[in-house]
Nucleic acid binder design. Structure first.
Length: 660
DNA sequence: GTAGGGTTAG
């Protein structure tokens, strides 16, 4: 099906007749209508306008629509073909681009360059190089495309080889090589090349400064800024570079240096005479970057002070402040500021939703969520993760189903929240389904693999967990180790847990407080008293981790299970913090097993103070006295229970309440 | 404002 496009009016008529007007962008439709009213009826085929149409469609991401239009044309010139190829190259559809490239009647240097850059952006370096070697006449663009292709792929040797045998380097070639060197961490050579450049353009200094910052060379970046900044003509580019550095200092927590630089940049109240490009002055990005630096340093007061001084704020400024307050858990200020915003965008809404969701105010969060004029994936994820973190597991799953109905695709964050839901509710079947969804839709990163391990481990599928763990060959973090060690420990595989812990230490993975909770638990379950004590001691002197109340509880558990109740009391008395119910619970349980009524009484009384409503300690103590035939004491406990109005709770099984 | 290369801030 082809449209004979003699002139623009006939194209329009055909388009309307065939109900293809959706292929025409509004802008161009408007032009088409104007054409008709001026009665240009017998103009030659207007390929230029059709080409522009194709370009517009591609620019709006509608490549397949462009392709349909392209297919209907009877008149195409090289630009038409090139535009279409460029569309496919942008979409990384290299095969389709190559198909057109092979089919086109005449190629010019642009066609070749397009094809080469297509291959390079798809990481097909050799194919790109082949075309580069084959092509008839190369221009600057061809050489520079090839050079930057090598530079981006980390092949600086190849890039420099081309750079050196190029007939004439222009400023783009220099910029490509310098940024390539910086990307590969060769700071010294990059600076040398920069100094040797015959001329620099507006991008050169900015590229150098940002590359230096990415290599953590902030002070060197400041040096080149002073050394070469003065000779820079485009002052807007200079402020660009200053802003990069202010932001860089902010990200590294050097808020004082950021402020020093910020103060160096003059701030004119109003500009007269000189155009903005020629002036070196603070702009909204400078202010925003400085505010971010303060927020990063946790200084909301200074951030707010600066924000209030701003004469011109953009959405970014507002969003930075709002999300700053959100992260500082100051939802009052966050929502206060949000309610004052020209134009909250989806980011602003997301900040508020996730702020309320993370602080447990799910209803408020949901209220804002429902009122959003537009939602994106992050909005859904914030809300789902809010439900998950606040233990509203049904809410999380329900919203996930709504998300799918709304046609929003899930990503690794969604799936990770859902896996946590499965872990918390011990929902193995659902967890496996989510796992399948993971395999089908994303390449799991470390956190997502960790969620999978945790899910399987919590559900008791310890071998599945280990499979995931073992497949993370070069990429495990300490959370992966903790999940696996903890999984073994909590399912009675004490030996495996400790073996993995030893492996972890051999591989120089630094354990955390979480690791030790699992390790000590494993020792308690396996009855490894001496080993448990040694591990406990190693926490501080080997790894500098101060034992917390959970660790003491485990240690108390370890020794009291072994019947060393006096030793357990000694530990309790030397603890730097107040013993909690886990500590006394461990003692009480062991007293029952080892039939030590005296210590049981101490532990039970402590527990009664900590949990006045619980009947557990009373019952246990009563039974122990009864077993020992000490009926007077037993009765005393019963009376105490009545006086304190304690009722015996019906026994229930946690598993029974969650399953089916 | 018809197609291709480098590159710069929050």
């Amino acid at each position: 099906m082809a449209i004979w496009c003699r002139n623009i009016s006939s194209l329009r008529r055909s388009v309307v007749k065939r109900q293809l007007s959706h292929l025409i962008t509004p802008n161009v439709s408007g032009q088409l209508i104007r054409c008709r009213s001026t009665k240009i009826s017998d103009a030659p085929p207007d390929i230029r306008r059709v080409n522009k149409n194709i370009t517009n469609l591609i620019r709006n991401g509608r490549v397949e629509d462009a392709r349909r239009l392209f297919g209907m044309l009877t008149h195409r010139n090289t630009v038409t073909w090139n535009s279409m190829i460029s569309g496919y190259v942008q979409q990384r559809e290299i095969v389709k681009a190559r198909y057109l490239f092979d089919k086109m009647p005449q190629r010019d240097v642009v066609s070749w360059n397009l094809m080469i850059s297509g291959y390079l952006s798809c990481r097909h370096l050799e194919e790109g190089r082949k075309l580069f070697d084959e092509m008839p006449g190369r221009d600057f663009v061809s050489w520079n495309t090839m050079i930057s292709g090598y530079a981006k792929a980390g092949k600086m040797n190849e890039a420099l080889k081309l750079f050196n045998c190029m007939p004439d380097n222009n400023v783009v070639s220099w910029n490509a090589v310098i940024s390539g060197l910086l990307r590969n961490g060769d700071v010294k050579t990059a600076v040398e090349y920069f100094k040797r450049m015959p001329e620099r353009d507006s991008a050169s200094l900015g590229a150098l400064v940002s590359g230096l910052i990415q290599n953590e060379e902030l002070d060197e970046a400041e040096n080149v800024l002073y050394e070469f900044g003065e000779s820079n003509d485009g002052k807007e580019d200079l402020i660009h570079a200053y802003n990069t550095l202010i932001a860089g200092y902010g990200q590294k927590g050097r808020v004082g240096d950021a402020r020093r630089l910020f103060d160096k940049v003059p701030s004119y109240s109003s500009g007269q005479g000189i155009s903005r490009k020629k002036r070196f002055e603070r702009n909204v990005v400078s202010w925003n970057s400085m505010i971010m630096a303060y927020i990063k340093a946790g200084d909301m007061v200074s951030a707010r002070e600066l924000f209030d001084q701003m004469t011109e704020r953009d959405t970014f400024s507002w969003n930075t402040m709002v999300s700053g307050y959100v992260h500082a858990s100051n939802m009052d200020e966050a929502s206060n500021l949000f309610s004052k915003m020209r134009n909250p965008d989806v980011l602003s809404w997301n900040s508020i939703v996730s702020g309320y969701a993370q602080t447990g105010k799910l209803e408020l969060a949901r209220d804002y969520f429902e009122r959003m004029p537009q939602k994106n994936r992050v909005s859904w994820n914030s809300m789902i993760s809010g439900y998950e973190r606040n233990a509203d597991y049904k809410g999380a799953i329900k919203l996930f189903m709504e998300m799918q109905q709304a046609g929003e695709k899930s990503d690794r964050h969604t799936l990770s929240s859902l896996l946590s839901v499965c872990a918390e509710t011990v929902a193995l079947f659902l967890g496996m389904q989510i796992h399948q969804l993971v395999s089908k839709t994303v390449i799991p990163d470390i956190p997502l693999n960790n969620s999978l391990i945790t899910m399987y481990a919590r559900c008791g599928a310890i071998h599945e967990a280990r499979k995931i763990f073992d497949n993370m060959i070069f990429q495990k973090d300490v959370i992966s180790w903790n999940a696996m060690v903890g999984g073994y420990a909590s399912h009675g595989f004490a030996f495996e847990a400790l073996e993995l812990f030893e492996l972890m230490k051999r591989l120089k993975v630094r354990p955390t407080r979480i690791t030790f909770i699992s390790v000590l638990n494993a020792c308690a379950h396996a009855g490894l008293v001496e080993q448990g004590r040694l591990y406990f001691k190693s926490m501080d002197y080997e790894f500098g981790i101060k034992p917390e109340v959970e660790h003491f509880a485990s240690l108390v558990d370890i020794v009291s299970r072994d019947g060393q109740l006096e030793e357990a009391m000694k530990v309790i008395n030397t603890m730097p913090m107040e013993p909690d119910k886990a500590v006394w619970g461990a003692v009480l349980g062991a007293c029952r097993v080892h039939n030590n009524v005296e210590f049981a009484r101490i532990a039970a009384e402590a527990l009664m103070r900590l949990e006045p409503e619980s009947s557990g300690p009373y019952c246990l103590l009563y039974n122990m006295y009864a077993d020992a035939g000490r009926w007077d004491d037993a009765n005393e406990i019963r009376v105490l229970m009545e006086t304190n109005n304690i009722r015996k709770e019906p026994a229930y099984s946690r598993m029974g309440s969650t399953s089916s």
